[in-house]
């Protein structure tokens, strides 16, 4: 039973970054901008917030009120992701650039910048930022009940924050004037423009929300990975894009999709202790096989869902008033 609880607990932890980042991608694409830069946004969010946590720790300030510090780190991650995403917004909205290439530029920039900065801050060759242990929510003994073990054994503040942001996202998208206008811009920007909606402004908002959520997602990923920040999020930004497609650009479906993907990721990590999984005895470095799993599953899922998926109609197309 304990192993099942641990797997479920880890699944939630790994689902959190996917959920946040995929929701971010959803806001961007619903406004009409393909955001392939999520990977880079995650890295920047993680970089800045991890540097903050490290600094707080070294200054001896974090341990006294750990969760308040983590909350600050979350806000910093969000802000830095948002600022970084402005680069994409500016290129694709103001300059009408190719969104895929613009996103690729950001994805190239982020890890390089992270390495250069950590190198500059920590000294030559020191590219890994270690996280203090107090970032984890502790105080649950191993003998607690099943649900306590699932939700609390290994948990971070990012999990409740993500739950909150999911609810806010749903309300924002479907129940507010902002959401209605944002969705209109992703489907038919000329229609939105003709009734006085400022398409550029809505798209800026969409991309910046994706930066906000992507930045937090980057921190959540680094917390989940557990070994500190090393200038990479291992393709999670792209997995989140797949989660978004699988979730059909809808918040609740995205929640389901991210849990599903996270489960595959976690099953790989626990492979040796899960009795019902093949352990590939005789195969060296079999962990690679399990590390491959989420990517293969993504491929298969995309193939099966691509026919049914319905992307926002105007995504990827720069808005040009003259074209009708």
């Amino acid at each position: 039973m304990n192993i099942i609880a641990d797997v479920l607990g880890s699944t939630i932890i790994f689902a959190v970054p996917l959920l946040l980042v995929a929701l971010g991608g959803m806001f961007s694409e619903r406004s009409g901008i393909v955001n392939i830069a999520l990977e880079g946004i995650m890295i920047i969010g993680a970089l800045v917030s991890c540097l903050f946590l490290k600094t707080a720790n070294e200054a001896g300030r974090g341990a006294s009120s750990p969760q308040l510090t983590v909350l600050l780190a979350i806000l910093i991650a969000a802000a830095s992701g948002m600022i970084f995403s402005l680069l994409l917004a500016f290129a694709s909205i103001k300059l009408k650039a190719d969104q895929t290439i613009g996103g690729t530029a950001l994805n190239t920039l982020a890890p390089a910048f992270a390495i250069v900065l950590t190198w500059a801050v920590q000294g030559q060759g020191q590219t890994n930022i270690m996280l203090p242990t107090w970032v984890r929510i502790s105080g649950i003994s191993a003998e607690s009940g099943f649900f306590a073990r699932v939700f609390l054994k290994n948990s971070y503040l990012t999990t409740p924050v993500a739950a909150l942001l999911l609810i806010v996202s749903i309300i924002l998208l479907y129940k507010t004037r902002f959401g209605l206008r944002l969705r209109a811009c992703g489907e038919h920007p000329h229609a939105a423009d003709s009734v006085g909606v400022n398409v550029a402004r809505m798209r800026y908002a969409g991309v910046m929300i994706s930066g906000f959520l992507g930045g937090i997602g980057g921190l959540a990923f680094t917390l989940a990975a557990g070994s500190g920040f090393s200038s990479t999020v291992a393709g999670y930004g792209f997995l989140a894009l797949a989660v978004m497609i699988f979730g059909n650009w809808k918040p609740l479906n995205i929640l389901g999709a991210s849990l599903f993907f996270a489960l595959f990721k976690v099953v790989g990590n626990y492979a040796s202790s899960l009795p019902f999984l093949p352990d590939f005895t005789g195969v060296k470095s079999s962990t690679y096989i399990y590390q491959m799993l989420p990517y293969i599953v993504t491929m298969i899922i995309l193939i099966f869902t691509s026919k049914k998926s319905r992307a926002p109609k105007a995504e990827g197309i720069p808005y040009d008033k003259g074209q009708r």
Binding site: L87, A91, S92, L95, K96, A97, D98, Q99, I101, G102, T104, A105, L106, T108, L109, P111, A112, F113, I115, V116, W119, A120, T127
Partner: peptide, 19 residues
């Protein structure tokens, strides 16, 4: 300097190429 400085230059080149 970190050799990744070059990647930043490349990123800027890609970014400029996007438009």
């Amino acid at each position: 300097f970190a050799v990744e400085t070059i990647d930043i230059i490349l990123a800027v080149i890609i970014y400029m190429s996007a438009f």
